[in-house]
């Protein structure tokens, strides 16, 4: 049979569909929005592409830079927490018996089958003042108080007069919890893929040579799963940076992320050129992060 790579007509025929799709529904709209970022508003809805850089100048205003900064910090913390939480999860799946492995993997991707909005509202039901988290804490408080009364210590009210529910919702912590919850699978799956390929005898060799479990983890497991760590970090960091639903629903007044500002420009503020400029600033940042990864990957020997 003829090598399909050499059959040019077949190559073009197969490639045509995806190419048309990408150009029409991805590249073209993106270019239009990119052009908008150099446009000026004329009236309420009309725009004129004048090549102005004023939108970008305005986007670099300290007010917006601060939001950019906060978004980067939120995304960074989310990535860090996801890594710390996701690594043991991925390890547990890899070391589970073959019978349990698919079940555990399914549990990791199960949340994807529910709409993000629904999941976020569910999180509100958990975190709000009269939510499940506080109910659980209250139950523990009641049990402890009862126990203390039984011990004859009831009159001291060691745990306070009554249960004070925690303010878990509508603040930065709630946003981080929400972002980690949403993005954790994107960390666990690449980590799992990297750890699954790891030769167990390498860990055993480290132990055999005198390393403690922890030392073997740090000197063998972590360096060898670096490709998974980097992929996971990028897969979490980039979407977390552009999140708007989570800070919108779970955050307080000071938890606005850059995507919330962008959304407002396109909807309520009706300032598409400024929204486009902000979007593309975020995109340039993302490209820079990816370029950095590419450089890193080349240095690490094509991982």
């Amino acid at each position: 049979m003829e090598d399909w790579r050499r059959g040019r007509s077949a190559f073009w025929l197969i490639g045509l569909g995806p190419t048309v799709w990408l150009v029409l529904f991805f590249l073209l709209p993106l270019t239009i929005v990119w052009l908008y970022s150099f446009a000026e508003l004329r009236g309420v809805v009309d725009m004129e592409v004048t090549g102005t850089l004023s939108n970008y100048a305005r986007a670099l205003d300290p007010l917006y830079l601060e939001v950019f900064g906060k978004s980067l910090v939120f995304a960074g913390i989310t990535t860090g927490v996801s890594l710390v939480v996701g690594f043991p999860v991925a390890l547990a799946i890899v070391f589970a018996t073959p019978r349990w492995r698919p079940v555990l993997l399914l549990l990791v991707i199960l949340p994807f089958w529910t709409n993000l909005l629904i999941r976020t509202y569910a999180l509100i039901a958990v975190l709000r003042v009269r939510g499940f988290a506080n109910f659980t804490l209250e139950w523990f408080w009641e049990q402890s108080t009862t126990l203390l009364s039984l011990l004859g210590l009831g009159s001291y009210q060691l745990l306070g007069e009554r249960f004070e529910p925690l303010e878990l919702l509508y603040n930065n912590t709630a946003v981080i919890i929400g972002l980690v919850y949403v993005h954790l699978p994107f960390m666990v799956l690449p980590l799992y893929a990297a750890l699954e390929k790891l030769d167990r005898s390498l860990i055993e060799a480290a132990l055999d040579l005198g390393a403690s479990q922890w030392r073997a983890f740090l000197t063998v497991v972590v360096p060898l799963s670096m490709p998974g760590i980097i992929s996971g970090a990028i897969l979490v960091f980039i979407p977390a940076l552009g999140s708007f639903l989570t800070p919108d629903l779970l955050g307080g007044t000071d938890s606005q992320m850059i995507a919330n500002v962008i959304e407002r420009q396109f909807k309520s503020a009706n300032d598409w050129p400024f929204g486009a400029a902000l979007s593309f600033l975020l995109m340039y940042l993302t490209f820079a992060a990816l370029a950095l990864r590419a450089v890193f990957a080349r240095n690490a020997g094509g991982l």
């Binding site: 005898s201 055993e204 055999d208 040579l209 060898l224």
Partner: peptide, 13 residues
């Protein structure tokens, strides 16, 4: 005691 593994288990990194 030290061991030479069947796969050698030489640390690739």
């Amino acid at each position: 005691i030290n061991m030479v593994f069947q796969s050698y288990a030489v640390f690739p990194h």
